[in-house]
């Protein structure tokens, strides 16, 4: 399973390294979303600074949608999905591998976005341990359901429209937890922040486990 996961993740990341879709399209997309928030909410620094955690995670969530869609577009082209099935690769390995590749892309994007909110919104970044840990746990919590629903939607004709409807309500608790943990890190009230981190970890762990169990039926003939 782990070997399959590494193989799938390596393949997806190699495709990304050669095509640079995430770097050339998703990162600029995330930046324009940040700018749009600035236009929408009077770029008086006070407001933007106060709502930075929320805006940051909404931007990550929207970008995650795009990255997940891209990840499963790869499978549809050139019969990638069939190749995975014919190759006898463990479905749990496929889930972990595709998830890991998406995770890497999103983490890189988050580093860029963090720098961007520090500059554009003037957010004073602080509380690094909590910030980093909660960001990683949150991203796993976003990626796990994202990968499940990405696979699920990719077999449908209405895949582009149904994915957000399925994915966004499920990650509503992640959004709440991530925003609160981020806020706590900035305010230096880490006690509450770590509690949110715990909730995020429970979410991430349960959805990763579910994904490993449920990927097999999803990879069957769609």
């Amino acid at each position: 399973m782990w070997r399959d996961a590494f193989a799938v993740a390596g393949r997806d990341l190699r495709i990304e390294a050669r095509s640079r879709v995430a770097v050339n399209q998703v990162v600029p997309f995330a930046f324009i979303v940040l700018l749009l928030f600035g236009f929408a909410l009077d770029p008086d620094r006070g407001i933007l600074q106060r709502v930075t955690p929320g805006l940051f995670w909404v931007t990550v969530l929207l970008s995650a949608l795009v990255v997940v869609q891209r990840s499963f577009a790869i499978e549809r082209s050139d019969g990638g999905r069939d190749a995975l099935r014919v190759g006898g690769i463990d479905p749990a390995g496929v889930f972990l591998g595709k998830g890991a590749a998406i995770l890497v892309v999103l983490l890189v994007l988050e580093v860029a976005l963090l720098a961007a909110v520090a500059v554009l919104y003037g957010a004073p970044l602080a509380g690094w341990p909590l910030l980093v840990v909660s960001a990683v746990v949150t991203t796993v919590g976003i990626v796990a359901p994202g990968t499940i629903y990405g696979a699920l939607a990719s077999g449908l004709r209405v895949r582009e429209t149904v994915l957000p409807l399925l994915f966004l309500p499920v990650v509503a608790p992640v959004m709440i937890g991530a925003t609160r943990a981020f806020e706590a890190a900035l305010e230096g009230s880490t006690g509450a922040g770590w509690r949110w981190c715990g909730l995020l970890a429970v979410f991430a762990a349960s959805y990763t486990a579910l994904g490993m169990l449920l990927f097999e039926p999803l990879l069957e003939e769609s």
Binding site: I148, A172, P173, L199, P217, L218
Partner: peptide
């Protein structure tokens, strides 16, 4: 299969949403 996966994931999410 698809709706069973969605149904199961949604059910698991209900207590998490409620709690959070």
């Amino acid at each position: 299969r698809r709706s069973a996966v969605v149904g199961l994931l949604a059910t698991v999410d209900v207590p998490i949403v409620r709690y959070s």
